[in-house]
Each structure stands twice: as structure tokens, then as C-alpha cells.
Amino acid sequence: MKLEVLSGEFGYANQKNLFKNLSFTLKEGEILAIVGPNGAGKTTLLKCIISILKWRSGKTVINEKELESMKMADVWKNIAYVPQSHEVVFAYTVLEMVLMGRAPHLSLFAMPSSRDLKIAKKSIETIEISHLADKPCSELSGGEMQLVLIARALASEPDVLVLDEPESHLDFKNQMLILRILERLAKENKISCIINTHYPDHALRIADKALMLGKGQKHVFGKVDEVITEQNLRNFFAVDVKIVSLIFEGMEIKTVVPIDFNKKIANF
């Protein structure tokens, strides 16, 4: 599986472009992290990549096939989208919710079969939330709900997983849990992941590639170490940072320490 975006350009109706000339390639089992300040259009970009929003120009290509020329249901057999976790209107149980991930494989009048049920249960096991299967979604914590949404995405058996800020609003433990799961899905299940994140730390930790998105249509794409740099972070976020590397039990962990606003760039 290979996913490419070629010269993507997008702006909302009657507004100027949020980004243009945006291109990148993601290979099988790679993780791409999209970082950028609030309002740069990270969520919008995700929606363009997966064709929920239509590119103004440019295209997304998956396995040499243009997304726009594919049938809707076929697109969503390849790509699964995990939205930001939110309040549910109807308190479906976790199993019912995950089963809905099978929708791209079912025709209009079809009901999920026992095979679909099996796949849903397997996704629940993969994410290790079997103990929640019969719980109504309204009773879950934010972290649990995020895991359920990831399990639902897995139930469609995708090649690409697209996640919108999966670890926002979560505590340390749940953040780690989500990051570990994504790493595992990429390495073991060979699922490519695209995530939006507010945490450059998290990008450094799990991503292979990074795309930094800024205001005024600027962006950089490349290997994560080459994109998440002190200089880029200062330019895009208007904050002076130090990237510190520390070794813990033989594992190198890089972390970004913010120092202060960069007064020259930040205009108050």
C-alpha cells in the first residue's frame, strides 16, 4: 500500500487557500504526523486527504488509483477515519459501535453477518478492550471512547488509518496507550497511519515522517527528525524551543521543551 498526495490545494468557499502545492508520500506501515499551530488547517487537511472535503486542485492517490475516481464504498475499505472523540447521542454498546465499522463492506439493505460480528470482536481484542464490549458508549471515559473509535476503524480492515488528534484531552497514561497501539498497528499489522497532533513530542516518538503546517500556506514535509527541529518550531509556532535528547534504559527519547514566545515572530 502506498498513499500519495500530489500538489494538494484547498481553501473553503470564497476564501483564499489554506494550503497549496502540498505533496507527500506515505509507504506501507509508516506513520505520518501532521503538526502545526491552531487554525493552520490540520483537521481540514486530513479531511482533504481522505476526500471528505474536495481538493481545490491536486489529488490523493492510493495504490496508483486516484481517490476521486473510486467508488465511495471502495475508498472506505482502504481508508478508515477516526474522528475526535465526542459525546454520543445514542448510547450504543461498544460492540454495536465497533460493528458499524463494517458498513463499507455491506450493501444498502444488508445486516451484519456472523462473520462481520467476528471481525468486530477481533478488532476489540486487538485494541484490548474486550472488557468493555457490552458497555454503553455513554458510560466510557474519553480515553476508552477513543480506543473504541480506533477499534471501529480497524473493523473495516483498512490499509490506512487516519486519526484526528487521537491523544488530545487524554491523561499521560492514555496518551501512551494510544501511541503504543498506533506503533503496534503500523509495525505488526502494516497499517499506515496519519495522525494530527498538538504534541511535537509524540511525533518524534512514533512518527517516521512529519508534515508541519503553518499559516500563510507554508509547510514542510520530510523525515520526522528533519521536520521537527528547533528552527521549524520557532518559525511555525513562534515559540523558542530546545529539543533535548535523553537516554533511558538504552532507549533514546527526544522531547521538545518550550522556552518562551519568540517576540520577533509572534505578533500580539
Partner: peptide, 22 residues
């Protein structure tokens, strides 16, 4: 006949769309 699809529609437009629903 459409009752299972109605579940998916109840998740909201974008989620339903990302589950392959027209």
C-alpha cells in the same frame, strides 16, 4: 430494511460518510 444503516447515519454526517455511506 434500512434499519442498520440508520444506526450509522445517527453518528453524524462526517462519521457516516467515513463509513462509506452515501
Amino acid at each position: 430494511l434500512l434499519r442498520w444503516r440508520i444506526n450509522i447515519l445517527s453518528l453524524g454526517d462526517e462519521e457516516a460518510q467515513s463509513l462509506g455511506i452515501n
